[in-house]
Design a protein around this nucleic acid. Sequence first.
DNA 1: TATCGTAGTGTTTTT
DNA 2: CACTACGATA
Length: 788
Amino acid sequence: MDITKALQLRKKYIQRQFAHLNDMQQQAVFTINGPLLILAGAGSGKTSVLINRISNMVRFADSFNSPYFPDDVREDTLQRLEAAVSGGTKLDFDQEREISTGEIRPYNILAITFTNKAAAELRARLAASLGKRALDIMASTFHSLCVRILRVEGERLGYAKAFTIYDSDDQKRIMREIMKDLNIDDKFIQLKTALNRISGYKDKLISPSEAEKYAANTHERLIVSCYGEYQKRLKAANALDFDDLIYQTVKLFRENSDVLEKYRNRYKYIMVDEYQDTSTAQFRLIDLLSSGHGNLCVVGDDDQSIYRFRGATIENILSFEEQYPKAKVIRLEQNYRSTANILSAANSVIENNKGRKGKTLWTSVKGGEKVKIFHLSREGEEGANVVSVIGENVRKGAKLSDHAVLYRMNMQSSNIENALARSGIPYRVIGGHRFYERSEIKDIMSYINIVVNPTDNLRLKRIINVPARKIGASTINTLQELADAKGVSMIDILYNMYEYPVLSRALTPLNNFLQIYKKLLELYRNSPMEDFVPNLINITGYRRMLEEQGDEGMTRLENIGQLVSNIQAFKDANEGATLEMFLEEVSLISDIDNYDADADSVTLMTIHSAKGLEFPYVFIVGMEEGIFPGEMSRYSQEDMEEERRLCYVGITRAKKELYISHCDERMIFGQTRRPLPSRFIDEMDSRACRLIDKRPQVKKVEPLSRATVVRPARPMPQSSFAAARRPKAAGGRKKTFARGDRVVHDVFGTGIVVNATPIANDTMLEIAFDSVGTKKVMANFAPVKKAD
DNA sequence: TATCGTAGTGTTTTT
DNA sequence: CACTACGATA
């Protein structure tokens, strides 16, 4: 056998498997040992690189760079290889294994992503390209990885296996109690500040006792004492918050070298996506895990670091090469997503930042539509503008799901929602009120929690009197004090309530609750998980409570129904699923994880949630000083740069067209303001943009630019100003429709009015469209007119 | 103890 | 403006 020829053949074969990638991407795929930093610009195909890199590891290990052939390679293997190379075909799994060095097992690969959704997508795509071998690859988020580890090893730190994960709402409840108990005025220290500081300490791996040393003033010392107390209470409840998951895992590894060794041996090849958004604690975690073998590949884009407020430190990516002097750096700057105009708008904005590695996206595709910048007079027109542009695009053949409306803060969605709703256009809002944060859902989840983890006093307190059982605040306090004094849980006190004279007055209601609790325990132990909630709402009287609440209660009941079907779906999707697993899943998921791109509707979300997604048509609304960039970021260079990165993320979500809008006048926090257009608009390369003045004025004013803008001398008195600018319905006068009218709608085409109901100053039309069925729209607002 | 009303408050982004 | 927390009353 001619070994040189064999090596060449093998190299050629492997190269061919990844020939669809560009040179830089291939380099990333073939660099699998040692520290590697992939600086991947937006839309540079980094997910595809990640998948191909793993695919290369699993299929060929380091064969591409290896000068050796496996010892036992057979002659017919070589012949097949030769045939495959010359014929351009692919070998099957077993045949590929014969030419592979084969030392990397899927089991040894750990890929960490930012959201569960990204992890799920990664798993799905790996399964598509690797089949069953993909199952052993660990693809998860930092948080779920840590939960996994802590469930197994947590006892070393004194946590029982069934620990609860506290969300921000739970954190607030605990903190409120602490501040009350420590007699801290919540005006001197705000709840949110205290929790933020604690989170900051944990992100930086600072324990309460260490924090004491840093505390410079009374204010800070008080916060630190809250921190200590907070940790004590969480531990007592056998609970961890989000930050603890990371912090305690690092602690676990630092204090138990045998445990660390075990996981180092398991995860020999580590990849971290969205590296620019990792915190100090997260860095420490992967540094510990990778420091035996050094096979750490991080992928990120310093220009897309947008989670500083949450403890992410851009330093991690900026100083990767210092942390790992042997690191290889690969830059992916070719963009496969957006048009040249969109890219040049993005590039010209981000250039204004100083703290960056510097990188310029480029595309081989020329031109494209210019970025459209709409100048509107009032925020009410923003929605109308979105509707009209969507209408145009739909008539050209685009789908509703090709559109996304992005904004800085969640509260901005309501304008757009109104407009879409009144036009009958289906939409989905991601974020905002989340399903699992609804009070009825949290109640039910709390019931499940106290059954799974009886030491969870916080959750017990949430539901012990919901529905009302005559167990008042004073009784609950007494229970808590008894539990604290004895060092047991409140449930334990309940079981022995007759021993405590202080409880004598409340014995009947308490006993009622205990009986309910016992029934729930039995239900939990003896019936299938999907039956738990339906029975629970009967046993606890929760259903009756809601039924007595009328309409509102019915909606809540429907939400609980949704929860039940979520549990069923979870059971169907996961073999051997338990309620504990469901609780865990829920405590780690976010809204974006449920985003379903297939439904034909417009997507509304914050730019933060849009990270990692792409849409053919993107709107960014509210591009005004004070909103984007936000008021808070005005005085700090660092905050301003983060806003700019956020803007960059927003722009680069768009594939074909980007629409930006700003208004002269906007009602915000109950006040009418007249904001200037965002500085980011000025920063955009004007050659890539087109300014469109949509203000209903006769004389056109030169588009505003920073140099020429003069603040309106005296805003007119609100009322008359607003009245003067009341938007007119398209066509100028009030539109009247009657049943049987044939109409045409910008988005849905032609149809017949089957019902017209006057509502306030408007008319709700029910229209049977020729192609999309019946929809309800508001006559004066929706883009409809009589067809003839 | 429960409910209603009022006053005050805070307004970024979230695993 | 919208939501929450707290206090007064039944």
